[in-house]
């Protein structure tokens, strides 16, 4: 199965000379009117290279979801901009798929599993035969080849989230955004799904932007971990994860380097919770 799927689900990505796929510059988001305005995100700037796996962690309420919704084009930023593949994002862009935290509510309950996966492909005007192949392959890749005719509500939570992942993968995105996708599944399922995401990322060569509040998960999945401050949000630190690319739940998590990174990110998040701001901002103000 692997050999054929590997050959057939491929993603072509247009890259700039620098290999930069996504650039977020000076992103700021203020909710509400001038009277009771809340500054959710103050100033976020970062870029991801094509094919990179970037995880974003931060204390709860740090504006992680706001950031992700701005990148996905679901929410217009107050100032600053998001550029994907050299085009400014003004609405949901082409070549982007999103897996939401609320899996049960992001699948269409009146469509079967296969129809849910197929719908975005229809809209992309993918030919029928090709569509059928993509649906079958992506469902197989997430281990749901046997339930295409079921409805989402007939499946367990972990299986529903797999359907959402299959839908994203079948879409053949250049960048995959995941917003705390495993926050609502049990620990065992969570480990399985982490491995699934990691293997899909390795195989498809897509760029992954993964928002989570779980530090271990961020280090396990990412090549880089962006640690956010508390509100109003800025980037506290960009931590490179220098672990080997082959990862698995036991050896990677027991790796002394993993422990060091974990400690480091943990301390950063603790500091963020206490309201610590990055040095650059302190000198500015």
């Amino acid at each position: 199965m692997t050999a054929t799927t590997k050959a057939t689900i491929t993603t072509t990505t247009t890259t700039t000379a620098t290999g930069e796929l996504l650039r977020v510059s000076g992103l700021r988001k203020v909710y509400g009117s001038s009277g009771g305005a809340t500054e959710a995100v103050r100033d976020l700037t970062f870029a991801t290279r094509t094919g990179e796996a970037v995880c974003i962690v931060g204390p709860s309420g740090a504006g992680k979801t706001t950031l992700l919704r701005c990148i996905a084009g679901l929410l217009p930023p107050t100032s600053g901009e998001v550029v994907l593949e050299d085009r400014p994002v003004a609405g949901p862009p082409e070549g982007m798929a999103v897996v939401f935290q609320d899996y049960a509510r992001s699948l269409f309950p009146w469509l079967t599993v296969a129809q849910n996966v197929e719908l975005p492909l229809r809209e992309k005007r993918v030919a029928k035969g090709e569509r059928r192949r993509l649906v079958a392959e992506s469902l197989e890749a997430v281990g749901l080849a046997d339930v295409p005719g079921s409805y989402p509500w007939q499946l367990s939570g972990g299986m529903q989230q797999r359907v959402a992942i299959a839908r994203a993968v079948a879409y053949e995105p250049h960048i995959l955004l995941m917003d705390e996708p495993f926050a609502a599944v049990d620990a065992q399922t969570r480990a399985d799904l982490e491995d699934l995401v990691r293997s899909l990322w390795t195989r498809l060569g897509i760029t992954l932007l993964f928002v989570t509040h779980d530090i271990d998960e961020a280090i396990y999945l990412g090549q880089r971990v962006l640690v956010l401050s508390s509100r109003p949000t800025v980037i506290l630190e960009d931590v490179a994860v220098d672990l080997p690319d082959e990862r698995d739940q036991l050896t990677t998590r027991n790796d002394p380097r993993f422990q060091e990174l974990r400690t480091r990110v943990y301390e950063l998040v603790q500091r963020a919770k206490r309201g610590h701001r990055p040095a650059s901002e302190v000198t500015l103000s």
Partner: peptide, 27 residues
């Protein structure tokens, strides 16, 4: 109609007619 469903329809760039038929009317 649930916001995650609306967001999903936007992210996957469903066309207005599909949104009407598959999301709004069914929902």
């Amino acid at each position: 109609i649930d916001r995650p469903l609306r967001d999903t329809a936007r992210v996957y760039r469903l066309r207005p007619l599909t949104r009407l038929r598959t999301v709004v009317l069914r929902g």
